[in-house]
Design a binder for these strands. Structure first.
Length: 453
DNA sequence: AAGGGGTGCAACCGCTGCGGG
DNA sequence: TCCCGCAGCGGTTGCACCCCT
């Protein structure tokens, strides 16, 4: 579907009328464009062809840049921001319009697997395309694939390194630039740890050792927890807008996993109709199991949830909006390097492989209205589910599952406790306790991992 | 045929980084 | 060093059009 938002010439009169007389015109002043040129209010909304012509003429005479002077030198009642956006997205020459080609789509998928939401950087690699276009395309893709219960990345997507974005995007609140830089440093540190982490097939043990490490470096731990709770098996979304927020999958590369393992294979297994994904445990999976038959317990801080969609409790470490981790090169140069060193996908066509992969069974019905929404179809859900089942059966902390109302004073932050199982009396072990921190940096549970002695 | 929800594009908003004064 | 303005970026929203019931 393609249509233009440019109104015809007759609209100009209408708009000028509106903006000069309508009481609601004042509401149309963007807070992001607060300046008022020539004593008139700045216009918002769709551009008219007349305005386009004025802007094009201005750029021809003055060149790009100095967008805030446009309204001074022309009759255009638009703020500089709006002018820049209009020019960059619609008016500048050599813009490619129309649907993305298959090659472009493939490139976007692969770039996103490595860059994350770096739309501007992606646009540099797609001549004629704008960051806005790419962003819209990706959001649409996310929505479509989440609806279909598909992984965001096809199996052939190159995921060669466990990089996630160095960019640490704080929320709009109280994280300073200094904090951000520190978080980036921490991220890099944790990143290196994570690489080590996945090199070891003693997955659970190493994972949680590193989680322990990372927890001490909060909020980095939230990245790792997110990675574990949201990404491993699901699309990892928390909805804050019309589109589900996207969480790039974090997994060791096939190479790091020692072969053919991939996110998608794992996901497929867990979603096989023969096995309820919500009732399997880590140890059920050949990759995660066998090495350590660790029981998992979840302490569910249910008070941190409201309607089951998004944890809304007060974030533990300040209002920190976490950049979603991804297998990303942190810099464009990294992508360049990847692009030059990475062979073409071996499969016939990456996008074809996407389609052929669209065979996952439909999402199972979830009969647990509490705690988690269906959008958080990650491992954490499974763990919680399992823990609840066990908890209802044993009602004891000494059992392998423990659910509380979250008001207890529970250990967190990777503390280790030696606990002897009391129920059966046959399974003593070391209990490792980890905070589970959600996509928004909210602590929503405590995970207990019993490592047999 | 109608209308309500879904979809996709365009534009806005808020924030950050950077450079100049 | 601090402040301010500008450019740019990514997230979010508005809205016209599409499609299904």
């Amino acid at each position: 579907m393609s249509y233009t938002m440019v109104t015809d010439e007759s609209d100009d009169a209408m708009y000028s009328s509106i903006y000069n007389e309508s009481p609601s015109a004042a509401d149309n002043i963007g807070s992001g464009c607060t300046s008022r040129g020539k004593g008139s209010v700045l216009k918002k909304g769709p551009w008219t062809s007349t305005e386009d012509g004025i802007l094009i003429d201005y750029v021809k005479r003055h060149g790009e840049g100095n967008w805030n002077t446009v309204q001074k030198h022309t009759s255009l009642a638009r703020c500089g921001k709006s002018c820049r956006l209009r020019w960059a997205n619609h008016l500048r020459p050599n813009l490619k319009k129309g649907a993305f080609s298959k090659e472009e789509e493939q490139l976007i998928v692969e770039m996103h697997a490595r860059m994350g939401n770096k739309w501007a950087q992606m646009a540099e690699h797609l001549p004629g395309r704008t960051d806005n276009e790419i962003k819209n395309y990706w959001n649409t893709r996310i929505k479509r694939r989440q609806r279909a219960g598909l992984p965001l990345y096809p199996p052939g997507t190159h995921v060669e390194d466990l990089h996630w974005s160095q960019e640490y995007h704080p929320s709009t609140s109280n994280v300073t630039g200094v904090d951000r830089r520190r978080h980036q440093d921490i991220l890099q540190l944790a990143n290196s740890k994570a690489n080590v982490l996945f090199d070891d097939l003693n997955f659970a043990n190493v994972l949680f050792e590193d989680l322990n490490f990372a927890t001490s470096l909060l909020p980095v731990a939230s990245h790792i927890s997110d990675m574990f709770s949201c990404n491993m098996l699901g699309t990892g979304a928390s909805s804050s807008s019309r589109y589900e927020s996207y969480t790039p999958p974090i997994l060791p590369s096939p190479k790091q996993l020692g072969g053919s393992g991939s996110l998608f294979n794992i996901r497929q297994e867990f979603q096989s109709p023969q096995k309820n994904p919500r009732s399997c445990s880590i140890s059920d999976h050949p990759m995660y199991g066998n090495h350590h038959q660790s029981d998992v317990m979840i302490q569910d801080s249910h008070h941190t949830f409201t309607d089951g969609m998004v944890p809304t409790s007060k974030p533990l470490f300040g209002a920190v909006k976490l950049e979603l981790p991804s297998f990303q090169y942190s810099e464009a140069s990294g992508f360049d390097q990847w692009k030059t060193t990475t062979p073409s996908p071996p499969q016939s066509d990456l996008l074809d492989s996407v389609d052929t992969y669209i065979q996952s069974p439909p999402p199972l019905e979830i009969d647990e209205p509490d705690c988690f929404s269906s959008c958080d179809t990650g491992l954490l859900d499974m763990l919680l589910h399992e823990a609840k089942i066990k908890a209802s059966a044993k009602h004891s902390f000494s059992s392998t599952a423990c659910i509380t109302d979250g008001t207890q004073d529970v250990p967190r932050g990777g503390e280790t406790h030696n606990i002897t199982s009391g129920a059966g009396g046959n399974s003593s072990g070391e209990i490792k306790v980890y905070s589970l921190i959600g996509c928004k940096g909210t602590v929503f549970g405590v995970l207990y991992l019993r490592v047999p002695l």
